[in-house]
Write a protein that binds this DNA or RNA. Structure first.
Lengths: 341, 341
DNA sequence: TTGTAAGCGTTATCAA
DNA sequence: TTGATAACGCTTACAA
């Protein structure tokens, strides 16, 4: 049952060639005669050879591994991003070692050490925990996605444009007051651009607006309670005004929508809601919800393209590493559904 | 910048020991004097040694890699399962190579070949595509999750009990007619048990019931259209009866709920709904939805426990492989929310 | 077009 | 308690 594994040496002695020739059969087949190629091909079948990449890695130093550090997979944004990243295997051939790092810096550092011990060729970091300066010091090609990125290459959604799109849509829905709810975001985080975009439009068109920047909560129940409070406050403060609310993500937008629905049996005319992400909940909601959609597939592909370029560069005899990190920005797509006019 | 990597040889010559001793420092430190341990420890720091697991793998044959074949990550069930599996790293130390296989058998076979080429020690298969008989023939420890599992070990939710729980809850909600909607499930699939459990309760209590086994659709819009039709049919067939509907999953339950809500502005008294999975949508719905919850974290941990046991067994000098596949069954948890009495 | 031999960074086996 | 030496499976000069 547990027969020894067939190696190049076995094939070599079986066919009468040397190990080198067998190796060449795999890496540069055209350097063999067609006849000999066939001989070896036959032997592979006959001996039931299974390739072993560990030897190859050791000899060549190339693992074709890419490490991924992702905060979690219960948020749809992250799981879909991972999905799309994994799908690039078909294009680039890199395999992915995945760690979900509970946003604890120490644990994530341990994960990175582990990844490096396996000679990963590059790393995609979605987790915001470890500063980009520290990441850069690992001296491995790295691409960050939607996180602080001063010292590393990155791919981000054009959050500023997202803020602009959201505010513009609410403006066209002729709202009396525009409100943007968001967490206490660092101004180094790409997501901060949303706030700037939103504010810029409001000021440009002299629209009354209010920013509500507060960390709502970590659990669903905390979120719900927080948003309930928020709704009551807004209702008291702007009772008869038409309120255009830009929520930080679709989940929160849905919670608000449900609260309104349960209270009024419908979405009142005095509310317009727009979410962020275009995650499934936005169209599975009682009322399909308008949202600023991130192009997750595009982002994933750009990230791998960027990373792959850096990794390939490293394999050259005289690699020229990037002088400056490259930052790609992907436009969001405004999705108009039924919670805005 | 790109300084050569420090190896055991460097440490050996720096400290005056042999490579063997350095190796032993890592694998069996107690066999060195405390004094010498300290000497080596100092040298490691001084030379900034980073471990390289590739050499270790080649020499020992142990990769500590586990391969995962998962159908997709856009379904919450799968992404959460992956999340929980990844989390077992802290307990078992196995690293995960993840492939998302579009349910195409050929592609998944290619993935498996690739995984085996990296000498993975075991595999967790969530994808239903490849028959367990074929999987078993790869001769690597394998655990299946919620899929056909005749020839491989597996961990599944107790689907029969799930069907029983759902039907029982609808019975207690004093429904006149019980309806179970589901796809055209193979009777070898664990999910088939749900149907049996549901039917058994209906027959035991002589409740009128109807099974609607049809593949509704692949896209959200198809699903919606299908469920809309379904609702119209049920309304016509059982106009004044109290209908208790057990949907195949929470997403579908939510679609039905929204259709009813949009039609009647509320959940009519003549409808009771229960979903399956306890995914986020079930509590983020307009009306928090009753559901049969899968214990994903328990399943993930049991799967790794089972797999780890088999993998450790293999490392023994005289391993005794399993005679029969082991099948673990995890009880579902009934979650009563507001769509049932 | 093919072969020889060295080497990648560890671990395993003996022997001391 | 330590060391010498041979693996592990493949790639890569260099030589033929």
């Amino acid at each position: 049952m547990k027969s020894k594994k067939v190696t190049f040496a076995d094939i070599a002695s079986y066919t009468g060639f040397s190990k080198t020739t067998i190796s060449r059969y795999f890496n540069n087949p055209d350097s063999l005669t067609l006849e000999n190629q066939q001989k070896i091909a036959d032997a592979l079948v006959k001996l039931d050879y299974k390739e072993n990449k560990v030897g190859r890695i050791l000899a060549s130093g190339k693992t074709e591994f890419v490490g991924i550090i992702i905060p979690n997979l219960y948020m749809h944004y992250y799981s879909e991003m991972l999905n799309q990243i994994l799908a690039t295997y078909e294009t680039y051939g890199y395999k992915f070692l995945v760690f979900a790092g509970n946003a604890k810096a120490d644990i994530e550092r341990k994960y990175i050490e582990e990844l490096l011990a396996y000679n990963i060729e590059g790393m995609i970091v979605l987790s915001p925990t470890i500063p980009s300066k520290e990441l850069a010091s690992y001296n491995v090609p790295i691409v960050g996605i939607e996180r602080e990125d001063q010292y590393i290459s990155s791919v981000n959604t054009d959050n500023y444009m997202g803020g602009v799109q959201a505010a513009s849509l609410l403006r066209k829905s002729s709202c009396d007051i525009l409100i943007h709810v968001n967490g206490k975001i660092q101004d180094t985080s790409p997501a901060f651009g949303r706030i700037r975009g939103f504010v810029d439009i409001c000021e440009e068109y002299q629209l009354p607006y209010e920013l509500i920047l507060t960390d709502i909560g970590n659990t669903f129940d905390e979120n719900r309670a927080g948003i309930l409070q928020l709704e009551e406050r807004l209702e008291k403060k702007y009772p008869d005004k038409k309120k255009g609310i830009f929520m930080p993500n679709d989940t929160h937008a849905n919670v608000l929508l449900n609260i309104l629905f349960q209270k009024y049996g419908k979405l009142p005319d005095t509310y317009q809601i727009i979410g962020f992400d275009n995650s499934p909940i936005s169209r599975e909601a009682v009322i399909p919800t308008s949202t600023v959609g991130q192009q997750i597939s595009v982002i994933a592909n750009e990230a791998m393209k960027l990373l792959s370029a850096q990794m390939e560069e490293r394999k050259k005899r005289r690699p020229e590493p990037l002088k400056e990190p490259i930052h790609k920005v992907i436009a969001p797509i405004l999705i108009r559904r039924d919670t805005t006019a």
